[in-house]
């Protein structure tokens, strides 16, 4: 085994894990704080990707497309929370699953109507369309490094906001005892709306920045959604720290699984989940 080849797979795994973390962190916060199982979370990933593809076509710039798709995804998230999800807080998980599953169908249909069923892609911008040469035959695309950098920077920002700011304290307190947060005079409805919108924006951003390396296609949100639920379950519901570790584990398990045991590639992720849950049934940080 070539050490450089191993290193490249390691980088790919970390990069995929970081991308998953962007999506899963919102899912775990929404699940942990609001008690909402949001099956439509993957749809925000898809929305971000389609918005980026569409806006890149309009503006001719990937950067502009990503920057514009971020507030749009947040806005869609906020509106969906205010109009629909808000009615679910006092209902049981079955109602939540029904409504958010319905949202997936609506999102998918809207995507078909607006943008059609074709598979799209965004050409890698020339400025970042080069690779870091590692050996004679192996090199690593610089865009993936940038992608990892963006995700890692956002992970740090999220850590600081959640661990150090009053907003972060409210979010954590909400995950622990939301009635008490309201009883301290904190506007929980607004807090939930903001968290939902931020979660949607992060998922949308993940979709948007991954467009140059993966195709923009119908159903792309569903695969991510399932992996993100695995991440959330591994990390412990409501824990952003857990989501980070879980996303790293799944990113690496998925990447190395495809390389080393291709016949079992679709199993490795669930194998990791089963192992973690046997050890810690409530997840790593529950």
């Amino acid at each position: 085994m070539d050490v450089w080849f191993f290193l490249i797979q390691l980088l790919n795994g970390v990069q995929y894990g970081l991308l998953l973390f962007l999506v899963a962190s919102g899912l775990t916060l929404i699940f942990g704080i609001m008690g909402i199982i949001n099956l439509a979370h993957g749809a925000f990933y898809m929305l971000g990707a389609y918005l980026a593809w569409w806006l890149a076509g309009l503006t001719g710039s990937l950067v502009a497309a990503v920057v514009l798709s971020l507030p749009l995804a947040a806005l869609v998230g906020y509106v969906i929370e205010a109009l629909l999800v808000r009615t679910l807080y006092k209902r049981d998980h079955l109602d939540q699953v029904l409504l958010t599953y319905g949202l997936i169908l609506i999102f998918n249909e809207a995507q078909r109507i607006l943008w059609g069923n074709d598979v799209h892609g965004i050409a890698m911008p020339t400025a970042v369309n080069w690779s870091v040469r590692l050996t004679e035959t192996l090199s690593y695309p610089v865009y993936r490094v940038i992608l990892s950098g963006i995700c890692a920077a956002l992970a740090v920002v999220m850590y600081v906001v959640i661990a150090k700011t009053r907003f972060g304290m409210w979010v954590r307190a909400g995950a622990s005892n939301r009635d008490m947060v309201a009883a301290l005079g904190i506007n929980v409805k607004l807090l939930f709306g903001v968290v939902f919108a931020v979660g949607a924006a992060l998922a949308g951003l993940a979709g948007a920045i991954s467009t140059p390396i993966s195709s923009v296609a119908p159903g792309m949100g569903d695969t991510v959604l399932i992996l993100c639920f695995v991440v959330v379950v591994i990390g412990g519901v409501g824990s952003v720290k857990g989501a980070f570790l879980g996303a790293m584990l799944i990113g690496l398990a998925d990447t190395f699984g495809k390389v080393f045991v291709p016949d079992f590639a679709s199993f490795t992720v669930y194998g990791v989940m089963a192992a973690v849950l046997l050890w810690k049934p409530r997840g790593l940080f529950a």
Binding site: M169, R172, A173, A175, S176, N177, D179, M180, A182, A183, L184, G185, I186, N187, V188, K189
Partner: peptide, 28 residues
């Protein structure tokens, strides 16, 4: 009104059972 809005009129509530947050420190 919402509980939070009522509370913000100048009321503080110490509930039965104390309402601790398991993931926040005393300082927080």
């Amino acid at each position: 009104m919402e509980t939070s809005a009522v509370i913000r009129q100048g009321i503080a509530y110490v509930p039965e059972g104390r309402g601790m947050f398991h993931n926040l420190t005393v300082r927080e």
